[in-house]
Amino acid sequence: MTTGERPVVVGVDGSAPSLHAVDRAADEAALRRVPLRVVYASLWERYEGTALAGDHKPAEEVRADDIVAVAARRARERRPELAVSAEVVAEEPEYVLVREGRAASALVLGTRGRGSVRELLLGSVSLAVAAHAHCPVIVVRGAGDGVGAGTHGPVVLGVGAHGKDSAAVRFAVAEARLHRVPLDAVRAWRCPARESVEHPLLSGEPARLHEEHAAEALEEALADVPADVELRRRTVEGPARDVLLDAARDAGLLVVGARRTHGHLGLQLGRVAHGVLHRAACAVAVVPEPE
């Protein structure tokens, strides 16, 4: 993957999940040999206005400065060789991060911001950014997702319909090489129930054909994977979301392509990407595919 000097960008908000995202982002930037950019975005003026004059900053702005300073220091301590910059932006975080992603090699975010209920569901900012960003978005779950020397699990790739031209495949291969871990490529398949019902004497034949088609699609998508990547292939019967969640239980990263749809609420992620972002046990990378 050619990224040039495009930085890895991490969005922070002072929460524990966002600090775990800083750790992941620092590692990703160091492995790519690109800078790390720490960004805090908030519309604090909406709440505090301009009542405080002179040299005094609004309390929320002071807090934002502290948040990015702590995050940048954490990244430098984790990866001393890393070039780190930090900025506070007085705008909606979703807009800021999507804009930052236009010039980034990847965006890294935590699962949820402060004040959210204690559950697995993804925060609204991370979900919105994953739905609109023009670069890969890595959403970090839990305390580090196995990040660290010798503890990074395999990269699990959900192989979709884009074949060997898939941006998700290229990203997953690059991640496996950077972290020196195996790449587990998984293709889910399903046999429509009506085929077995209409042909009760041939109930095994449709399933075999669907599995063969899945295996062929898997081979086509992985045709250009370099020999230095340890590649493990699997075809599994079942709904794609459930298959990928099960495959990624011990993974360091789950990679899926972004198949966006235009609905009445605007641009939205496909069901598989949306589902794994909400429920995966490991970090999830959503990679936009060319339209």
Rank of each mutant, 00 (worst) to 15 (best):
R74S: 06
H20P: 07
P35E: 13
S126P: 03
R102Q: 07
V108D: 05
L120E: 10
V98K: 01
W44G: 06
V96L: 05
E100L: 03
A128I: 04
L82T: 02
D66E: 15
L107E: 01
E81T: 08
P58V: 07
E45P: 08
L127W: 01
R76K: 11
A69C: 12
Y95D: 11
L109K: 02
C135M: 08
L19A: 10
E87H: 03
E28H: 06
E77S: 15
G110Q: 06
R73N: 13
A59H: 14
A71S: 14
A53M: 13
E28F: 02
Y95W: 11
S105N: 00
P58R: 04
P17K: 03
A75Y: 03
A86G: 06
E28V: 08
E61Q: 08
A86F: 00
E87T: 03
D23V: 01
L82Y: 04
E60S: 14
A41Y: 12
A133L: 09
V88T: 10
C135G: 07
R63L: 14
E45Q: 11
E45I: 11
L31I: 07
A90Y: 01
D55Q: 09
P93A: 05
A90K: 07
R46T: 12
R63N: 09
E119A: 11
R99F: 07
V70C: 07
R112N: 10
P136A: 15
A51P: 04
E92C: 05
R32W: 02
V137S: 00
L120H: 07
A130D: 03
L97R: 02
D65L: 07
R118N: 05
R74K: 14
R73S: 15
R33H: 15
V22Y: 02
R74E: 08
A21N: 10
L19H: 00
E91G: 04
C135P: 10
A90H: 09
A69V: 02
V98Q: 04
H132N: 13
G113A: 13
G49I: 08
E77T: 14
V70W: 11
L107C: 02
R102S: 14
I67D: 01
E60H: 13
H134W: 06
R24D: 05
E94H: 14
H134A: 12
V96C: 11
A21K: 01
E119Q: 12
S18P: 02
A25M: 04
L122M: 07
A106W: 00
V98E: 04
R118E: 10
A16M: 09
A59R: 15
L109W: 12
H20V: 03
G54V: 11
D66N: 14
A86D: 00
V22P: 01
G54N: 07
L121N: 12
A64D: 00
V96T: 14
R32I: 09
V98W: 02
A72M: 10
V38A: 00
